[in-house]
């Protein structure tokens, strides 16, 4: 059975009573361990699609099954647990909490776990080392550069050992070298731990390194 089945989902926004389909009748089957890249013009619906898969915005129609379960049929708390335990989300937008230090930001997703996994602090340090920010552990986000903040957010996505990582332009403001480091990091996680990746990117070189390539165009998904 595929890990994720996306069944004919559509997301319609109402802008001044005029409906806009941000995502239009998209269907996908994603197996565990897939590494999918999605490219597409700005406004083509990439973030919207990722958000629906990640359980943070409800599709107007259609279904998303994670390991056979329709995530939008679940009770609110179960959806939260799904986001917490199964998904590692890297947002397109800045997403660190300003009142927490880097370390606390990393630990935040573990706080919401119904069952503590243990070893959280060690794990935070480990991941921070992997994204090359060991020395920034007790610093506040405002004291970091945009790219450094982004790397903290990348590290945070792995804190709860997710089964699926949804990365929305994760390397948007990184230099080429760091971008390469991150990509290698993702590939290691994908190959060694079998983590599934769906990554939105504007960088075609990066997209080429993935196993499957998709393109979004005005709300519809096409294979390249």
């Amino acid at each position: 059975m595929p890990q994720i089945i996306v069944e004919n989902i559509t997301k319609t926004y109402l802008v001044d009573t005029a409906p806009i389909d941000a995502v239009r009748s998209v269907s996908m089957r994603i197996e565990k361990g897939d590494f999918i890249s999605i490219v597409g013009h700005s406004g083509s619906g990439k973030t919207t699609l990722l958000s629906m898969i990640g359980g943070i915005t409800r599709p107007s129609s259609g279904k998303i099954l994670f390991e056979g379960e329709d995530i939008y049929e679940l009770a609110s708390d179960r959806v939260s647990e799904y986001r917490c335990e199964k998904i590692g989300f890297m947002f397109q937008f800045a997403s660190l909490l300003p009142i927490l230090t880097v370390k606390e930001n990393l630990l935040l997703p573990t706080v919401f776990r119904p069952r503590p996994a243990g070893r959280e602090a060690a794990k935070a340090e480990e991941l921070l080392h992997l994204v090359g920010l060991t020395e920034k552990i007790n610093v506040y986000p405002a004291q970091l550069s945009g790219g450094q903040q982004r790397r903290v957010a990348i590290a945070r996505a792995f804190m709860n050992d997710p089964a699926l990582v949804l990365a929305d332009e994760p390397t948007g403001d990184l230099d080429e070298e760091t971008e390469g480091d991150m990509m290698r990091f993702f590939k290691t996680m994908n190959e060694s731990k079998g983590v599934t990746f769906i990554m939105v990117t504007h960088n075609t070189d990066l997209a080429k390194q993935t196993k499957q390539h998709l393109r979004m165009n005005q709300g519809t998904l096409q294979t390249v």
């Binding site: 990640g54 943070i56 609110s76 708390d77 939260s80 647990e81 986001r83 917490c84 335990e85 998904i87 989300f89 947002f91 997403s95 909490l97 300003p98 935040l108 997703p109 706080v111 919401f112 776990r113 945070r156 709860n160």
Partner: peptide, 14 residues
């Protein structure tokens, strides 16, 4: 901020 926490798995009760 609340949205981010919710997306990271915070329940309503959190």
């Amino acid at each position: 901020e609340v949205g981010i926490m919710r997306a990271l798995g915070a329940k309503e009760k959190h």
